[in-house]
Design a protein around this nucleic acid. Structure first.
Length: 788
DNA sequence: ATAACATTCCAGCGT
DNA sequence: GGAATGTTAT
């Protein structure tokens, strides 16, 4: 099925056609001569186009066969987009190439070499949740204090260690804390190995180690992938960089595309420094800068450029456009998060009336919790919207339950899945029984499943029934289609009945139906099985295998004699579910307003973009604003947000906001001071700040309209208790100060009163001074001047 | 063993 | 304002 290179070698004319629409810099990047190269690609400069055209050009000019290409991305979306675009550029089936996310490619690699990697053939992948609960079990089993060794933090520590390429024995033990962390890491690793599961970081590390330790394997892959292209290079971590070196060897060509100004993942180990290291260690001769922006108008770009100029340690890049200044950047100050949402709603409606599709209107925010207020406003107004992020489809509880049964069918030793559903729906297996079982498993070093027999006499009859149930599922589903398997499991597990009787179960039942649909879609997706095992297919057709030393079995797996499948559809689907958490809402196709975090917006663009919640403590986030590195990453995040907009950009902030269930008073973000005044248009009077007229009107309008906020249909309930925030704000004290008031302090500068306490000489105020933090001040001493 | 209730903690981004 | 835990009553 793979087409040989010779047949695809295009006439020169066709290759030239590929290049027709490129600007000079893009053209230079696409047609770079052999060698390693770095492309500094600014936002909206046609980065994906350059990457895909480069691949197509290399193939069409006969410089590489499709099988010799590896292209790595971070997100599934980016990988998919690359595949789609390539298929329009090339007459070749791009399946011969390795195109995917780092983790997806590692999965592919480990599926082919599972034996060599010391994994069971049907190894399963733990997502972040699973990983935390696995650590939790360890901490419990080791009888450690869960307050001190917080499972989430331990999981974070382990992932961090792996991303630095460190195994437990490499952890530097300095004190009791690190000693215990090391022990937890070791126990976690043993447990994963026993259960035949790997977490995300393990996919990367195991692949890296396998390449490092097996010369023949390494040579094979280094001979195969002549051209390696890496997208979003600024987001790579230490391990990914080492991994890349391992695949690249010394003779191959690596094209790294990145933008240091869009590095927003340092918090999870990304090293922008990899770009400089790459330039040095890979002897990069050519650095191409793409600075021509085809996305945004001038005012938007001016804002982005001015903002990011406040960062130090940049590689240096300035976006420019020939599109003219366009609309000014509009700035709005709201009195509350509710008012902010209401204002957005009004603007969005106006934009719609002016002819914009809803899907071209995006609301961006720093953290997921902020979506709720905006959702309420849209929901009450009946405006369709779509939220990205938050709870993803495969992360929903009911879906994870169903997947757990399916995983047990594939691999009964998966203790995480066992624990998830052993008593769900409830079948009379309580904590006492489970403790017995876990003790038995621990002392014998076997899985929970294997230990069921050991405690058979001690009230374990229900346990026996459970394993019998799963065994029966396995028997009953043998030979069925994936769809039938899932339908059967949802029924026979009792999940369907359970949710049918639940009050709020209707939506969960729908999701379970949706799971069946997802499976169906997965199966019909062309060549799903091949995707997981493309390597053997390549080998069968290819020439490369002949050159391989016999010592290394390139592929551990023999295809099923009957079906030719190397992986069962079920196993493949479970892998898919773990690696692609999926979208959270399946309202695909409908024209809807887009809601997402700034992180999720990276790589996307919209005609109209609203960046909301631009307040000190929120954006920049208080956990990041403390040190320079953190602050600079926040600024890059803001840069990413701004550069999403094509035509119009709106920035908004609010004086008050509900957070942790209570009202917080925030100052406007320092980023406003870093934007060019000439590009901005304040919709509310600037500097007059607190309680300005426009904002009040919106507030009043909101209060009039509320209370009617009845929700239609089943689903979430939207609180109608917004005005509470304003009562608190309006409450005055005898000395003339009130909470929510803007004040000036000679030392700390501008701030907002958060709380007032005490009377007379005892009167104290808690004031939020933004970047100077929250202070308690004695009013008899501190000189606070009202600023509005 | 389980359901109903009370309490605590959290809300920072993702493969 | 919600999930996830801990506690109590059946």
């Amino acid at each position: 099925m793979d087409v040989s290179v010779e047949n695809d070698r295009a006439p020169p004319g066709e290759a030239a056609g590929l290049l027709r629409h490129l600007n000079p810099e893009q053209l230079a990047a696409v047609t770079l001569p052999a060698g390693n190269a770095l492309i500094l690609a600014g936002a909206g400069s046609g980065k994906t186009r350059v990457l895909t055209t480069r691949i197509a050009w290399l193939v069409q000019t006969g410089q590489v066969s499709p099988a010799g290409v590896m292209a790595v991305t971070f997100t599934n979306k980016a990988a998919k987009e690359m595949l789609t675009r390539l298929s329009t550029l090339l007459p070749v089936n791009p399946r011969g190439m390795w195109i995917g996310t780092f983790h997806g490619l590692c999965n592919r690699f480990l599926r082919a070499h599972w034996k060599l990697a010391g994994l069971p053939q049907g190894f399963q992948i733990l997502d972040a949740q699973d990983s935390v609960s696995a650590v939790k079990r360890i901490v419990k089993a080791m009888k450690l204090d869960e307050e001190r060794y917080i499972p989430k933090q331990c999981a974070w520590f382990i992932a961090g260690a792996k991303e630095d390429g460190l195994r437990p024995q490499h952890i530097e033990v300095r004190d009791e804390l690190t000693r215990t962390q090391q022990a937890i890491y070791q126990a976690y690793e043993d447990q994963c190995q026993r259960e035949g599961v790997v977490d995300f970081a393990e996919l990367m590390l195991r692949t890296y180690e396998l390449m490092r330790d097996h010369a023949e394997l390494r040579q094979h892959y280094q001979r195969r992938f002549r051209h390696i292209l890496v997208d979003e290079f600024q987001d790579t971590n230490r391990l990914q960089y080492a991994w890349l070196k391992m695949f690249a060897g010394t003779d191959n060509n690596v094209l790294a595309v990145g933008d240091d100004d869009q590095s927003i993942y340092a918090f999870r180990g990304a090293r922008v420094g990899n770009m400089a290291d790459f330039e040095r260690e890979f002897h990069v001769q050519q650095v191409v800068k793409l600075e021509r922006n085809y996305r945004s108008f001038g005012n938007i770009l001016d804002s982005a450029n001015a903002l990011i100029a406040h960062n130090s340690r940049r590689l240096g890049k300035n976006l420019r456009t020939e599109a003219g200044p366009g609309e000014p950047v509009r700035v709005f100050e709201a009195t509350s998060d509710f008012a902010e949402a209401q204002w957005f709603l009004d603007e969005a409606r106006q934009l719609q009336r002016d002819g914009s599709p809803r899907s071209e209107i995006a609301v961006l925010y720093r953290s997921n919790a902020q979506s709720r207020v905006i959702e309420s406003a849209l929901f009450n107004a009946g405006v369709p919207y779509r939220v990205y992020g938050g709870l993803r489809f495969f992360e929903r509880a009911e879906i994870k339950h169903a997947l757990a049964y399916l995983r047990l069918i594939e691999n009964p030793n998966d203790d995480t899945s066992f624990l998830r559903v052993v008593n769900f729906p409830t079948r009379g297996i309580g904590t006492r029984t489970m403790e017995l079982l876990q003790d038995a498993a621990r002392s014998s070093g076997r899985s929970l499943w294997q230990s069921v027999g050991a405690i058979a006499g001690k009230g374990g009859s229900n346990l026996g029934a459970f394993t019998a149930l799963v065994d029966a599922m396995r028997d009953a589903t043998r030979g069925l289609t994936l769809r039938e398997i899932i339908e059967h499991v949802v029924q026979s597990s009792g999940l369907a009945d359970f949710y049918r009787n639940e009050k709020e179960g209707a939506e969960r039942l729908e999701n379970l139906d949706e799971l069946v649909n997802a499976a169906e879609a997965f199966v019909t997706q062309e060549g799903f099985g091949k995707d997981a095992v493309a390597l053997p297919v390549d080998e069968q057709a290819g020439r490369i295998a002949e050159r391989l030393p016999a010592a290394v079995a390139l592929v551990d797996t023999q295809p099923d004699a009957e079906t030719g499948e190397i992986m069962s559809p079920l196993a493949a689907f479970l892998t898919h579910a773990a690696l692609e958490a999926g979208d959270n809402q399946a309202q695909a196709g409908q024209d809807a307003v887009q809601l997402m975090t700034v992180h999720a917006a990276k790589g996307l663009e919209f005609d109209q973009v609203f960046i909301t919640g631009l307040e000190e403590g929120l954006f920049p986030h208080e956990n990041a604003a403390a040190d320079l590195d953190g602050l600079e990453e926040e600024r890059r995040l803001m840069y990413v947000a701004i550069t999403r907009a094509r035509k119009r950009l709106y920035l908004s902030f609010s004086q008050t906001r509900m957070l942790h269930g209570q009202t917080r008073y925030n100052l406007k973000s320092r980023f406003f001071d870093e934007l060019p005044e000439a590009a901005l248009k304040w919709l509310t009077p600037k500097l007059q700040g607190f309680g300005s007229g426009y904002a009040r009107d919106y507030q009043a309008a909101w209060q009039r309209g509320t209370g009617l906020g009845s929700m239609v249909g089943a689903g979430r309930v939207v609180p109608a208790s917004a005005p509470a925030a304003f009562e608190a704000q309006a409450r005055s004290t005898p000395n003339g100060l009130r909470s929510g008031q803007g004040v000036f302090h000679t030392k700390f500068g501008e701030g907002v009163i958060v709380t007032l306490e005490g009377i007379g000489a005892d009167a104290r105020a808690q004031v939020n001074f933004g970047r100077h933090g929250m202070k308690w001040l004695a009013l008899s001493v501190a000189k606070l001047t009202p600023v509005d």
